[in-house]
């Protein structure tokens, strides 16, 4: 098993990359500009691709090189490009009404990371993996999940919500590289592809929103209640 006998160098490289992507999630939380979100997401995808390469090299999973290339192509270039096009078309460059200011969302995000760490270290202790990279991977995976949900709930622009969803999935992707590098290749490929479909559908929907509701903020979506 990969995570139990890693060289110290590899372990610290993995930790560095995992923590870097967690920090990038915080960059998203701390800003109100849509382009910042997009940039942070793009860099995060590249970091995850780098992590794939590292796992492939140290763990001996050559198929992960392919995943890394596809991650860069899809998540690192194509998705950001598609989202950039939507942003350009929308005439919205930042969040106007935030339920939670960036500074307070940073604090909440930090609390969520602590919560994720408690859960992860409990689980790691149960599995006899305390102190290994597995705990860190679990922590980062869960915290990115929670931060994604935080973004979904406190940001109302359509683009922020799409990026929130992508952060959710990035978290899972990152965690699964370290925890289950042997997960069947087919699944990872299809999940990458699936993401592309998701973003295309979102793109079309955003156009509908703009054309028929006249706004892309979910604050204006309140006709259906009860």
């Amino acid at each position: 098993m990969l995570i139990t006998h890693l060289s110290p160098l590899a372990a610290s490289l993995f930790s560095l990359l995992a923590i870097a992507s967690l920090l990038l999630a915080f960059v998203m939380l701390g800003s109100r500009w849509l382009l910042d979100y997009l940039l942070a997401f793009t860099v995060e995808s590249w970091v995850i691709a780098a992590l794939s390469v590292a796992v492939a090299y140290y763990g001996g999973y050559p198929e992960l090189y392919l995943i890394a290339i596809l991650t860069i192509l899809f998540r690192g270039m194509l998705l950001p490009y598609l989202i950039l096009r939507i942003i350009r078309r929308l005439n919205v460059d930042r969040e106007l009404h935030m339920t939670l200011q960036p500074s307070s969302s940073l604090v909440v995000g930090a609390l969520l990371v602590i919560f994720a760490f408690v859960v992860a270290s409990h689980l790691g202790g149960q599995l006899g993996l305390a102190g290994t990279i597995a705990v860190l991977a679990l922590t980062v995976m869960l915290s990115m999940k929670l931060i994604g949900f935080l973004m979904l709930s406190v940001r109302s622009e359509a683009i922020s919500q799409i990026l929130g969803l992508l952060v959710l999935e990035n978290g899972i992707f990152l965690g699964s590289q370290i925890l289950v590098p042997g997960m069947p290749l087919l699944i990872e490929l299809v999940i990458l592809f699936d993401l592309l479909v998701v973003v295309v559908s979102f793109g079309i929907l955003v156009r509908y929103l703009l054309a028929h509701v006249g706004s892309t903020s979910s604050r204006d979506l309140q006709r259906l209640v009860g």
Binding site: K145, G148, L152, G164, L168, E169, L205, L209, H212, L221
Partner: peptide
Amino acid sequence: VEAAWKYIIVVSAGISL
């Protein structure tokens, strides 16, 4: 359109769990 947007956001977020 509102229903479609809520549908895809809520369900995609849920299903990612």
